[in-house]
Write a protein that binds this DNA or RNA. Structure first.
Length: 228
DNA sequence: GCGACAG
DNA sequence: ATCTTGTCGC
């Protein structure tokens, strides 16, 4: 029953998601800052890392914080578990530093979700900031041949809607799943992911956040700013 | 009832 | 996400 309530919340919030057509919405500028993030779990604690970067590569900093986990993971309701935690840390960084993100890139889905409200869409709407979902696995069920040439992609259709793409970021490497989170066009999101996934399957900054979160979980905080 | 199921 | 060994390769 609680599940049904959350389902209703998703449907309501999904109406607030702004999906832009090509040429409209957010477009990266060299000085723009984008936040990337990841969480490592250990018992009842979430070790969170948020990496701050700008498109001209003159900024690269990492902020970390450990917070108690309060919501269990349920497929399709991921945003209710990680969303509040990430939102809290993002707002803290905005408040305590001079950094404000023009874009959020999340390791998870945007609208490529049963009710169009993956974590990237949830965060984008809650914070009112453009967002992109770039997941390593799909949530929706569909059948398409996976592209194997860097830059190639296949559209993911769900209930008659174009909700994202299966994108190959490195030749002969498993693809990633890109979808709009908020205030951006799918085409722009694809180009951004491709430009930031220079050497590996996943975007460099997301890998960095993943690594920093793992280190934080082990008590290693060299080179990062520990928030409290 | 059984299996699938972002992180 | 996490539980887990070795192994191949740059």
């Amino acid at each position: 029953m609680e599940q049904e309530q959350l389902r209703q919340v998703q449907l309501q919030m999904a109406q607030q998601v702004e999906v832009c057509t090509e040429g409209e919405g957010y477009f990266p500028q060299g000085s723009d800052i984008y936040f990337t993030m990841d969480i490592q779990y250990e018992g009842d604690f979430a070790h969170i890392a948020i990496v701050v970067n700008d498109f001209k590569e003159s900024i690269s900093e990492c902020y970390v914080q450990t917070l108690p986990v309060e919501v269990e993971y349920v497929p399709g309701f991921f945003a209710f578990r990680e969303g509040p935690l990430l939102k809290q840390v993002i707002e803290k960084i905005i408040k305590e530093t001079d950094y404000y993100p023009q874009l959020l890139i999340i390791d998870g889905h945007g609208i490529a979700h049963p009710r169009r409200l993956g974590l990237a869409a949830w965060l984008g709407v809650k914070l009112g900031i453009p967002a992109i979902g770039c997941a390593k696995r799909t949530l929706l069920k569909y059948e398409v041949e996976k592209p194997t040439v860097r830059g190639a992609f296949t559209t993911i259709w769900h209930e008659g809607e174009e909700v994202g793409v299966v994108l190959c970021t490195q030749n002969e490497v498993k693809p990633v799943y890109v979808s709009v989170g908020h205030r951006i066009a799918l085409k722009t999101a694809i180009n951004i992911v491709l430009s930031l996934a220079t050497s590996y399957r996943q975007i460099e900054a997301i890998r960095m956040a993943d690594q920093k979160a793992r280190l934080l979980a082990k008590g290693v905080t060299n080179g990062v700013v520990v928030l409290s």
